[in-house]
Design a protein around this nucleic acid. Structure first.
Length: 1012
RNA sequence: GGGCGUGUAACUCAGUGGUGAGAGUGCCUCCCUUACAAGGAGGAAGUCAGGGGUUCGAAUCCCUUCACGCCCACCA
C-alpha cells in the first residue's frame, strides 16, 4: 500500500517533533573516542542578555551546517554551546532597568546586591537565547553548555591571570583610557563611536616668562584642559619659534611655569599656529609626547565623575563644561584670548551611555604584548607567527591581513574594567590608595599573612613596585599578591591581615579569549593535583577536541576576539585554538545599512521561522553566505491585517513614519520599530523578508518529490543495480548525482556555503524533479521497467536527503522517516538498511566512474529538442490534441543516442509522434526548425503565420551570421591559432561547422516559408 | 590619510582569461495534466559603473576616475 503525505510541508510540526527526538536520542552528544577523528567547534558565545538576531542566525546556521556535515561524514563531531556575560552591555542594561523601576543606582544597591540581580537576570535570558538557538536547529551538545562566568570558566580565567602575572606579562599601569563619566568606567575603543559635533575652536596665547609683551599662541577645542598643561610644543625646525625653545611660559590659571619644548612628532608647523599645548593626562598624543619628554610632568585635572579635581585650583568641583566657560572667560579677562571659530568637531561618545568620552588618566591592568626585554618574541609576535606559518588559516584568506596588521602594532592590552559584573581581578593589596605602576614577581619580601602557605602552595605570586618613577598620583603600596584559583584560605588570611581585593573586573574579551580551551575544561597546570575538579577526563577532553577545527565568526571581532584566542591558546595550552577561521559576511538591510532595532530595519529570525519555517530560514542564509559580499536583505513590514509584504522604505526607518496603509487590504498599521508604547489606534507590523520564499518553496518541492515517490513505491523490492546496464536516463541521473555530491562536498570543504545551496537546489529541482521524475512516470507504468525505476528513484532520493540534511535538517528528517517506511533498504548501486535518522546518516559519495560527460551530452541534446518543441507549441498556441510530426536529421551516431531517449521526447514535449533518423523527410511543408546540435523540423502547416515566422527566422539568421563572421575572423587570426589552447581552437572550428549547418538549414527553411 | 571590499537584468546575487553572460524573485503569455498553483511550460529583459591599457581574446588581469560599504589611524 502506498504511503500518502499531506500536500504541503508543515514546518512547525516537523520542527517540534524532530527537536525533541534528536535531543532525546542524544544524537548531538559527543564524548572522547580514540577510534574516531574529532571535529569540534566552539560557539561564539552570544551576549546573555541579547535576543536572537539575524547575525546569530547566520553565524549559527553556518556552524550547524558544518557540524551536521562532519557528523554525517563519521567524525566525532562536537559543538559546544554557551553564552557570554558581556560585562558592560549586561551591567548597563540591568542598571538602567533597576533605575527605571526603582530609581536606584548601583551605589544604592551595593556590589553584592547588584551582582545578585544581574545573575537572576542572566538566568532568565540565558535560557531564552539558548532556546532560540535550539529553534534554529543548532545541533550542539547541550550537556556541555558553558557560561563565561561559570566555575569552569572562572577557574581558567584565574589560572591564566595568575600565570601571566607571575611571568611578568600582566602589569598595572597608568594609561589614558576612554573614560565614561556617567558610568564611571573606562570603555574600550570599540565601545565608542565618533560623531561630527558642532563645537568651538579657540585660539589663546600664553605669556613668555621673563619677556614682557612676548606671547605664544596655540589653539584648542577643549580650553578646560589648559589647567593640566605641562608644556607648549613646537616643531624643532619651525623658524617662527626656534628661538623660544627651552624658554618658559606662564599658565595663567594656575600660575605654573611650563616649558616650551620641541617635538617633531607632536607639532605640525603647517597646522594652526604651529604651536600646540601639551596636556599629557587628557590627550593621547600629548600623553605620548610626555613619554618622550617625561621631565615636563603630567597633571590629572579630572575626577572620575567629570568634575575638576584639586589640581584645578579655583575651578575645583566644577563640571568640565562649566570649567570650559570659566577658563575661557578668564583668558578673555587677561587679554590672552585671540579668537574663536565654530567648527564641526569629531567627538568620541560612549556607546553605552551616549555621553562624550574624556581621555582620562587612570590605573589599569595591562597585558604586555611587545617583545620581551631579552629580545625574545612577545605575546603579539607569537600570535602573529601562528598565522604567518600557516598553522591558523583564514577563509577567505585576505582577513589574515587585518589580524596581522593589528597585532603588528603590539599595543598593550588593557584588561581591567571598572565594573562589578565580571571576573574580579585576583589581586590583593594592602591600601586604599591606588597601587603602583609596574610589578614584577619576586620571592621576597613576603607579607606575614602568606608565610604559612609559601612552602606548600604554588599558586601565590607577589610583586612590588620596582620602578622609581611616579606619575602625578601618590601611591602607598608595599605588596601586591596574586592568587591562583583554589586558594580560598589564603584569600581569607590576606583579607584578615588587612589586604583588599582589587575592585576591578577583567575585560570580557579576557574570558572570551580562553573560550576554546576553558569550555573544554582546561584545568590549568597550577591546580593542586589532588583537587577533585582536576580530573584525567578533563585532560582527555582537551586532548581529543583541542585544537578545535573551525572558528566561524564575523570580521569585526578578528582583532578583539580571534587574535586573543590564538594568543591565550598558545600561552595556556601551547597550541593554537583552531585550525581554520571562517569569516562570514554581514547581513545588511535593503539599503546596505547594518540592521538595528533603533533603525527599525531589522528582521527577527523567529518571525521568519514562524512564517517560512526554520529550513527556509537556514536555506536563505546559506544561500546568501557568499565569499566576498555582505548580504543585503530587503525588509518588509508584514501587514498585521492581511499578511501582505510591504517593503520598508528609508523614510519608514527611525520611527519617522507613524502609519502606513496596506496596499492590499487598505487598512492602516504602524511600521515595525522600537516603539516605546503600544499604538491604541493601529497594530504594529512585524518585519520579514520575502527572500526566504525560495527556501520555503524548495522545502515544499522536496516534500512533494517524496510524495511522488511514496505514491509510486508500491511493490518496491530492494536489489542492486548495475550502473553500466542502466538506460541512458538513469546513467544521466547517476552522473549528475555523483557530480553534485562531489561539488557539494568540495564547496563545504572550502566554506563556499552559497555554492552548497545553489548546487543542491539546481540538482534537486532542475534535474531530478523537472526531468528525471517526469521521465520516470512512463517507466513506472510498465511492469518490466518499474522495479529498476523504483530502485533508482529511491536510491537517488536517499542521496538527496543526505545532501540536503545539513542545510535543511527538518524537512529531510521528516522525509527520511517517510521514505524509511516505503523503502527501508535502499541505495545505489546496492541497497543497505537506512540509518535510523538522517542526522546520523552517512554523508554520500559515489564512484567517480559514474560521472559520464558523453551521457550528459546525449541527454543535453534531448533536452534541447524538447525545449525547442515546447517553445514552438507555446509560441503558436498549439492545441494539445493536434499531432505533431518531428523529424530529426543527424549523424547515425547521434541518431543512436537520440533513439535511446526518443521515447521520452513525446511525453516531455507534449507531442504525439516522433520519427528520428538520419534523414529529413521531404518535401517540407510550412513548418519550423529547431536548431540544437542536430536539426529537427516541426511541420506546422496551417498553424503558423508565415510572415511572422519569416521575420523571426530572419532575425535568427542575422544573429547566426554575425556569430559565424566573428568566429571565422578569430580563426583567420594567426595569433589566435598559435596562442590559444588547441582545444579552444578546435571548439571554435566545430562551432563554425555547426553554425554553418544551422545557417544553411535556416535559409532553406526560410525559402520554404516564402514559397508557400 | 592607510587597508580591505563592492559596483553584472527591475530587485538580491553567482560568474577570476576562451563559443552568443547566469540563477532566484518580480514582470508577460499559456496551463489547476493524479508529486507539487509554495506548481508546470515558454517569453521579454543586461553598452557586466565610466575611461584607458595588457592580450589572439577581458565582466574576469593592470592603471585610472566616479559611487558605495567596512576596518584602522588622525584631526592642537
Amino acid at each position: 500500500m502506498a504511503i500518502e503525505l499531506p500536500k504541503t510541508f508543515d514546518p512547525s510540526q516537523a520542527q517540534k517533533k524532530w527537536l525533541a527526538v534528536w535531543e532525546q536520542r542524544g544524537y548531538f552528544h559527543s564524548d572522547p573516542d580514540p577510534h574516531r577523528q574529532p571535529f569540534s567547534i566552539v560557539i561564539p558565545p552570544p551576549n546573555v542578555t541579547g535576543a536572537l538576531h539575524m547575525g546569530h542566525a547566520l553565524n549559527n546556521t553556518l556552524q550547524d551546517v558544518l557540524i551536521r556535515w562532519r557528523r554525517m561524514q563519521g567524525y566525532n563531531a562536537l559543538w559546544i554551546p554557551g553564552t557570554d556575560h558581556a560585562g558592560i552591555a549586561t551591567q548597563s542594561v540591568v542598571e538602567r532597568l533597576i533605575f527605571t523601576h526603582e530609581k536606584k543606582t548601583r551605589h544604592d544597591l551595593g556590589r553584592a546586591e547588584l551582582v545578585k540581580r544581574i545573575w537572576a537576570w542572566k538566568d532568565k535570558y540565558e535560557a531564552r537565547i539558548l532556546e532560540q538557538l535550539q529553534a534554529l536547529g543548532a545541533s550542539c551538545d547541550w550537556r556541555r553548555t558553558r557560561f563565561t562566568l561559570d566555575p569552569v570558566c572562572a577557574r581558567a580565567v584565574r589560572e591564566t591571570f595568575f600565570r601571566m602575572f607571575r611571568a611578568g606579562y600582566i602589569y598595572r599601569g597608568q594609561r589614558l583610557v576612554n573614560w565614561d563619566t556617567q558610568l564611571q568606567t573606562s570603555v574600550a575603543d570599540d565601545e565608542t563611536y565618533t560623531e561630527e559635533t558642532p563645537g568651538s575652536f579657540w585660539t589663546f596665547r600664553y605669556p613668555v616668562d621673563g619677556q614682557p609683551g612676548v606671547f605664544i599662541a596655540f589653539s584648542t577645542t577643549r580650553p578646560e584642559t589648559m589647567l593640566g598643561d605641562t608644556a607648549l610644543c613646537v616643531h624643532p625646525a619651525d623658524e617662527r619659534y626656534k628661538h623660544l625653545i627651552g624658554q618658559h611660559v606662564i599658565q595663567p590659571h594656575t600660575g605654573r611655569k611650563i616649558p616650551i619644548i620641541a617635538d617633531g612628532l607632536l607639532a605640525d608647523p603647517t597646522l594652526g599656529t604651529g604651536c600646540v599645548k601639551v596636556t599629557p593626562a587628557h590627550d593621547p598624543n600629548d600623553y605620548a609626547c610626555w613619554q618622550r619628554h617625561p621631565e615636563i610632568g603630567i597633571i590629572n585635572i579630572l575626577n572620575p565623575d567629570g568634575t575638576i579635581n584639586d589640581n584645578g585650583g579655583e575651578y575645583r568641583g566644577m563640571d568640565r563644561y562649566k570649567a570650559r566657560e570659566a577658563v575661557t572667560h578668564k583668558m578673555q579677562e587677561l587679554g590672552l584670548y585671540v579668537g574663536q571659530e565654530q567648527r564641526i568637531i569629531p567627538l568620541k561618545f560612549s556607546d553605552r551611555s551616549k555621553t562624550p568620552i574624556e581621555p582620562y588618566l587612570s590605573d589599569q591592568w595591562f597585558v604586555k604584548m611587545s617583545d620581551r626585554d631579552d629580545g625574545q618574541p612577545g605575546l603579539a609576535q607569537m600570535t602573529m607567527d601562528a598565522v604567518t606559518t600557516g598553522r591558523v588559516k583564514f577563509f577567505p584568506e585576505r582577513y589574515a591581513r587585518s589580524y596581522l596588521d593589528w597585532l603588528a602594532e603590539k599595543r598593550d592590552w588593557c584588561i581591567s574594567r571598572q565594573l562589578w559584573w565580571g571576573h574580579q581581578i585576583p589581586v590583593w593589596y594592602k591600601t586604599e590608595q591606588q597601587p603602583p605602576e609596574v610589578f614584577r614577581m619576586v620571592a621576597e619580601p613576603t607579607p606575614r599573612a602568606l608565610q604559612p602557605f609559601l612552602r606548600t602552595r604554588p599558586g601565590i605570586a607577589i610583586s612590588w613596585q620596582n620602578k622609581p618613577h611616579r606619575a602625578a598620583d601618590d601611591f602607598n603600596v608595599d605588596f601586591v599578591v596574586c592568587l591562583a584559583p583554589g586558594n580560598d584560605d589564603i584569600e581569607a588570611a590576606l583579607e584578615a591581615d588587612g589586604f583588599t581585593r582589587d575592585p576591578d573586573v577583567l575585560d570580557t574579551w579576557f574570558s572570551s579569549a580562553l573560550w576554546p580551551h576553558s569550555t573544554l575544561g582546561w584545568p590549568g597546570p597550577t591546580l593542586p593535583e589532588n583537587r577533585p575538579d582536576r580530573t584525567p577526563a578533563d585532560w582527555e577532553k582537551l586532548r581529543q577536541y583541542y585544537p578545535t577545527s573551525t572558528l566561524v565568526t564575523s570580521r569585526d571581532i578578528i582583532t578583539l576576539w580571534v587574535a586573543r584566542m590564538v594568543l591565550m591558546g598558545l600561552y595556556n595550552v601551547g597550541e593554537i585554538p583552531f585550525h581554520h577561521v571562517y569569516i562570514h559576511p554581514k547581513i545588511l538591510d535593503g539599503f546596505g545599512e547594518t540592521m538595528s532595532k533603533t533603525k527599525g530595519n531589522g528582521v527577527d529570525p523567529l518571525d521568519i521561522i514562524e512564517i517560512y519555517g526554520t529550513d527556509a530560514l537556514r536555506y536563505g542564509i546559506v544561500k546568501i553566505a557568499t565569499e566576498t559580499q555582505d548580504a543585503r536583505l530587503p525588509v518588509s513590514n508584514i501587514c498585521p491585517h492581511c499578511g501582505q509584504d510591504v517593503p520598508v522604505k528609508q523614510e519608514h526607518m527611525y520611527m519617522r513614519t507613524k502609519k502606513l496603509a496596506c496596499p492590499a487590504c487598505k487598512k492602516e498599521f504602524r511600521p515595525g520599530g522600537p516603539w516605546p508604547t503600544d499604538d491604541p489606534e493601529r497594530p504594529t507590523a512585524k518585519q520579514g523578508s520575502d527572500r526566504f520564499e525560495e527556501g520555503r518553496n524548495f522545502a515544499n518541492k522536496l516534500w512533494n518529490a517524496a510524495r511522488f515517490l511514496l505514491l509510486n513505491l508500491e511493490g518496491y523490492r530492494p536489489a542492486p543495480v548495475d550502473p553500466a546496464a542502466l538506460p541512458t536516463e538513469d546513467r544521466w541521473l547517476l552522473s549528475r548525482l555523483a557530480t553534485t555530491t562531489q561539488a557539494v562536498t568540495a564547496a563545504l570543504e572550502a566554506y563556499k556555503f552559497s555554492d552548497v545551496a545553489r548546487l543542491i537546489y539546481e540538482f534537486v529541482w532542475s534535474e531530478f524533479c523537472d526531468w528525471y521524475i517526469e521521465m520516470s512516470k512512463g517507466r513506472l507504468k510498465d511492469d518490466t521497467t518499474r522495479p529498476v525505476a523504483q530502485r533508482v528513484l529511491a536510491g537517488a532520493f536517499d542521496g538527496i536527503l543526505r545532501l540536503v540534511h545539513p542545510v535543511m535538517p527538518f524537512v529531510s528528517e521528516s522525509l527520511w522517516e517517510a521514505l524509511g517506511q516505503a523503502a527501508p533498504q535502499r541505495g545505489l548501486p546496492a541497497p543497505t538498511p537506512a540509518e535510523e535518522a538522517a542526522c546520523i546518516a552517512r554523508w554520500p559519495s559515489y564512484p567517480q566512474q559514474w560521472i559520464s560527460p558523453p551521457v550528459e551530452t546525449r541527454f543535453a541534446r534531448m533536452q534541447h529538442l524538447v525545449r525547442g518543441v515546447r517553445e514552438i507549441r507555446n509560441r503558436y498556441q498549439v492545441e494539445e490534441k493536434i499531432k505533431l510530426d518531428v523529424r530529426v536529421k543527424c549523424s547515425d551516431a547521434v541518431a543512436a543516442d537520440f533513439n535511446a531517449l526518443a521515447a521520452f521526447i513525446g511525453p516531455l514535449a507534449g507531442i504525439a509522434t516522433l520519427t528520428a533518423g538520419p534523414q529529413i523527410t521531404k518535401p517540407r511543408q510550412s513548418g519550423t526548425l529547431i536548431t540544437a546540435e542536430f536539426e529537427a523540423y516541426v511541420p506546422l502547416a496551417g498553424l503558423i503565420d508565415p510572415v511572422a515566422e519569416a521575420k523571426r527566422l530572419e532575425k535568427q539568421l542575422a544573429d547566426k551570421r554575425k556569430a559565424l563572421e566573428n568566429t571565422q575572423n578569430k580563426l583567420r587570426n594567426e595569433k589566435f591559432v598559435a596562442n590559444a589552447p588547441a582545444e579552444v581552437v578546435q571548439q571554435q572550428r566545430e562551432f563554425v561547422a555547426e553554425i554553418e549547418k544551422q545557417i544553411a538549414l535556416l535559409e532553406e527553411n526560410l525559402k520554404d516559408l516564402q514559397s508557400n
